[in-house]
């Protein structure tokens, strides 16, 4: 992928303390590079993200938001999967009413060793957002 650095879209990642953040750490440890305008905020569980935070991110200037979800590995129980999708759905509905392309919010389950999957997600998401620009 060749994306010119200057116009790199800014992506906000919500990662989770015990599951997906370790995977993002491991990506660094293994020096698997991904676009440098990816920033993370760590939360305990992906089903704790308020839609208004996501909307605020777009408002403040982020181009995309990615939820690195716990998936079925969630230490707080399996209902996490369904709750995270519900909040994504809910947020995307709100995005539509605000005229933000819902695809600018993405979610994927990132397990604690899924560093390659994470890097791939960041690359394709960046690519997608570049094409949107």
């Amino acid at each position: 992928m060749t994306v010119v650095n200057q116009n790199l879209p800014k992506i906000l990642v919500f990662s989770t303390e015990k599951i997906s953040d370790p995977a993002i750490d491991m990506a660094g440890l293994l020096k698997l590079h991904y676009p440098p305008k990816v920033y993370t905020i760590v939360v305990p569980c992906s089903s704790a993200i308020k839609p208004k935070w996501i909307l605020k991110a777009f408002e403040d200037g982020f181009d995309g938001v990615f939820i690195a979800a716990d998936g079925t590995d969630c230490p707080y129980g399996e209902s996490c999967v369904e709750k995270t999708s519900a909040l994504v759905q809910n947020t995307q509905d709100k995005m539509k009413t605000k005229g933000i392309e819902p695809a600018k919010l993405r979610m994927a389950a990132i397990c604690s060793v899924c560093s390659e999957a994470f890097v791939k997600q960041m690359k394709t998401f960046t690519e997608y957002l570049v094409n949107q620009q």
Binding site: A27, K31, L32, P36, K37
Partner: peptide, 14 residues
Amino acid sequence: REQCSWAHSDNKPK
């Protein structure tokens, strides 16, 4: 470190 210097060791200014 993990989420910056190592992840972007290919791009020091960024």
